[in-house]
Amino acid sequence: MQFMREIVRGIFKDNPIFRLVLGMCPTLAVTTKVENGLGMGLAATFVLIGSNLAVSALRNVIPSKVRLPCYIVIIATFVTIVDLLMNAFAHELHKNLGIFIPLIVVNCIILARAEAFASKQNVWLSIADAIGIGIGFTLSLVLISAIREIGGAGTLTIWGSFGWTISGLNPALIFILAPGGFVTLGCLLAGMNHVQTILARRAGKPFQPPLDFDCRHCTICRFGS
C-alpha cells in the first residue's frame, strides 16, 4: 500500500520537473523529440532504481562524511552500465542520446533522491520512490517533447519510424530550438502552479509549494495564500 503511495507521490506531488524543478539541463536539452525524451526518461529511471537500491542497502555502512563521493561512485557505475548496455543492444537510440547518457551522472534528480530519500528509508520504499520519480520524470519529458515536436516539426515520433505527421500545421521552428524549450517549460510550470493554486483555494487551504522549491518571487503562489 505504502509502496503504491510512494510511486504516486513521485509522479504528482514530488514530480521532479514540475514540482521539485530538478534536472533542468537534460530536460531542456533532449526534449526536441518524443523519442529522445522517452529514451532519456527510461535510462534515468533505470539509474535511479539502481542507485536508490544501492544507497539504501548501504545506508548503515557508508559513513556520512564520505557519503557524497560514495553516492557519486554508485551513480556513475550505474550510468556506465546503462551506457554500455544501450550501446550494445539499442545502438540507434544510443547514437541519438549520445552525450546525454554520461551526463545522467550529474543529473541532480538522482543525487537528490539518494540524499533526501534512499539514505533514510528502507530498500523497498526506496525502490518505490525511484520508480515513482522515474515515471514522473519520463512522463514530464514526454509531455514537454510532445509539445515541442508537434509545434516545431509537425511530427510526433514515438519510436523509430513509428509516429504521426500532423498535417495542416505550419511548424514554428523556435519550439525545437533552445528558446522554445525555455518558453514551453515556463508555460507548463506556470500552468501547473496555477492549477495547484485553484485546487488549494477550493479546498480552503493555502497553496504550499514543496519545501525545497523556492518560489517566493512567483506571483502565482501569492494568489493562493
Partner: peptide, 10 residues
C-alpha cells in the same frame, strides 16, 4: 575507516 570504505566502494 573512511578511506577503507571509499576504496572498497570504488
Amino acid at each position: 575507516r573512511l578511506v577503507g570504505i571509499l576504496t572498497l566502494c570504488c
